[in-house]
């Protein structure tokens, strides 16, 4: 049962392997050249497992000690996980002990795969999601640790490889669009993010975006529910 779930899960994580090794190594190298031992990226990747925050944490660690500011930044960068949790309430039901790891390791990529993947009937859903999450974390931790160890020895001629993450989210978004009948909420999310990006800038548009999405979904609940077409 476990082997079958692993075999089903692995192909879904191949793009993440490319993306996480690239980004993870970049992160490890960044920590290395900022003067930190490889233990830092390794421990942080195991215990935080959230790429964007880990990058920001480097600048927090090199700045003067400011715990409250660190907490506020963390909550703002990671707030989107609240949305993932709400979407996964049903899917994680009855997963036993695996549920706690699934929640712990719910980064953007693991959430997106676990939410959208068509899991074959004869494969255990819990183990499938468990292996997706575990493999993704393994890629991230090994990439960032390697980056931290090798540091500035590595020279990149891989400019543009990070686009693998963008391409993956584009494909997942497209799959979602093809599955659903009405695209109101897809439109809400995309438009809110675009408008907030223009108004608030690249570094601080996610919290306003999420508030906009919540407000729009609340105000237009009736027509959206009436149209239905959810997957």
């Amino acid at each position: 049962m476990r082997l079958r779930a692993f075999r089903a899960a692995f192909p879904h994580t191949i793009p993440i392997f490319a993306g996480f090794w690239f980004l993870g190594m970049a992160y490890g190298i960044y920590m290395n050249v900022s003067g930190f031992s490889f233990v830092y990226p390794m421990v942080m990747s195991i215990l935080i497992f959230g790429g964007s925050l880990e990058f920001v944490a480097v600048s927090m660690l090199t700045a003067p000690f400011a715990p409250l500011q660190t907490l506020i930044m963390t909550l703002m960068i990671q707030a989107r996980h609240l949305f993932y949790g709400i979407s996964m309430l049903d899917k994680f039901k009855g997963m036993g002990w695996k549920k706690y790891y699934l929640i712990f390791g719910m980064c953007d990529e693991s959430f997106s795969i676990n939410y959208t993947a068509k899991i074959p009937q004869n494969v255990d859903r819990g183990w499938f999601m468990f292996f997706v999450t575990l493999l993704n974390q393994f890629y991230w931790v090994s990439g960032s640790t390697l980056g931290g160890l090798l540091g500035s020895l590595i020279h990149f001629d891989t400019e543009g490889l990070d686009f693998v993450m963008t391409a993956m989210f584009v494909v997942i978004f497209l799959e979602q669009l093809m599955k659903e009948k009405k695209h109101y909420t897809a439109l809400v999310g995309t438009a809110a993010a675009l408008i907030c990006r223009l108004c608030f800038g690249a570094d601080s548009f996610m919290v306003p975006t999420m508030l906009c999405i919540l407000a729009l979904l609340t105000v237009f609940r009736k027509p959206i529910e009436k149209a239905g077409g959810f997957v």
Partner: peptide, 17 residues
């Protein structure tokens, strides 16, 4: 309702992100 309505909005948001 949010659990059903959010994912499409999230994936759109992640592409922009």
């Amino acid at each position: 309702y949010l659990g059903r309505a959010l994912p499409s909005a999230i994936f759109g948001m992640l592409v922009v992100y």
